Amino acid sequence: MEALRDQPWGVAAVCGGMCSCATCHVFIDEAWLAQLPPRDVDEEDLVDMLEFEAPNSRLSCQLRLGEQHDGLQLELAPEE
């Protein structure tokens, strides 16, 4: 989330990573989904309420990325 928030075109991340606002909603490229942990209950509940929810929807604040994720492809979700 921090890397996306710091870009001029990035996510708002209003809640600062507390999994309470969904302003960091992204769509993960299908090829990368299996390399990320599944959504936890809090993220699942919040994502389910989104207008643009999809099977590859994630809240970027809930993704802990490492070197193994270099090259990760995603798309910013439309603002809700």
Results as ranks from 00 to 15, higher is better:
residue 43 E to M: 02
residue 30 E to F: 00
residue 26 V to K: 07
residue 27 F to Y: 15
residue 33 L to F: 04
residue 41 V to A: 14
residue 36 L to Y: 09
residue 74 L to R: 02
residue 59 L to N: 10
residue 64 R to N: 05
residue 33 L to W: 02
residue 47 V to H: 08
residue 23 T to A: 09
residue 34 A to K: 11
residue 21 C to Y: 05
residue 68 Q to D: 11
residue 20 S to A: 14
residue 74 L to N: 02
residue 50 L to V: 08
residue 34 A to M: 01
residue 75 E to V: 07
residue 63 L to N: 02
residue 64 R to I: 10
residue 76 L to W: 07
residue 56 N to I: 01
residue 25 H to D: 03
residue 15 C to S: 11
residue 75 E to T: 13
residue 33 L to E: 11
residue 3 A to W: 14
residue 62 Q to V: 08
residue 24 C to R: 06
residue 19 C to S: 12
residue 44 E to G: 10
residue 22 A to V: 14
residue 44 E to N: 09
residue 80 E to V: 05
residue 1 M to R: 09
residue 60 S to T: 14
residue 17 G to I: 11
residue 67 E to N: 07
residue 62 Q to T: 13
residue 14 V to M: 10
residue 42 D to L: 13
residue 55 P to K: 02
residue 45 D to G: 04
residue 45 D to W: 02
residue 61 C to I: 10
residue 3 A to P: 03
residue 71 G to W: 13
residue 17 G to P: 08
residue 49 M to H: 09
residue 56 N to P: 02
residue 24 C to H: 09
residue 11 V to K: 13
residue 17 G to F: 12
residue 59 L to C: 03
residue 80 E to Y: 12
residue 29 D to M: 00
residue 23 T to G: 03
residue 44 E to W: 01
residue 9 W to R: 12
residue 35 Q to D: 14
residue 11 V to H: 01
residue 45 D to H: 06
residue 40 D to F: 12
residue 9 W to D: 15
residue 50 L to H: 08
residue 31 A to K: 14
residue 71 G to L: 10
residue 2 E to L: 09
residue 19 C to E: 08
residue 75 E to W: 15
residue 35 Q to C: 04
residue 43 E to S: 07
residue 65 L to K: 04
residue 65 L to D: 06
residue 76 L to T: 08
residue 47 V to Y: 06
residue 22 A to H: 06
residue 39 R to T: 13
residue 43 E to V: 05
residue 71 G to V: 11
residue 25 H to V: 01
residue 21 C to R: 07
residue 77 A to M: 01
residue 75 E to R: 14
residue 24 C to W: 05
residue 68 Q to H: 07
residue 64 R to V: 11
residue 10 G to S: 07
residue 1 M to W: 04
residue 55 P to C: 06
residue 54 A to D: 04
residue 18 M to L: 12
residue 2 E to Q: 12
residue 53 E to D: 13
residue 76 L to I: 15
residue 33 L to N: 06
residue 42 D to K: 13
residue 6 D to P: 00
residue 14 V to D: 15
residue 6 D to S: 13
residue 4 L to G: 15
residue 29 D to P: 00
residue 63 L to P: 01
residue 12 A to Q: 13
residue 72 L to K: 09
residue 56 N to Y: 03
residue 51 E to I: 08
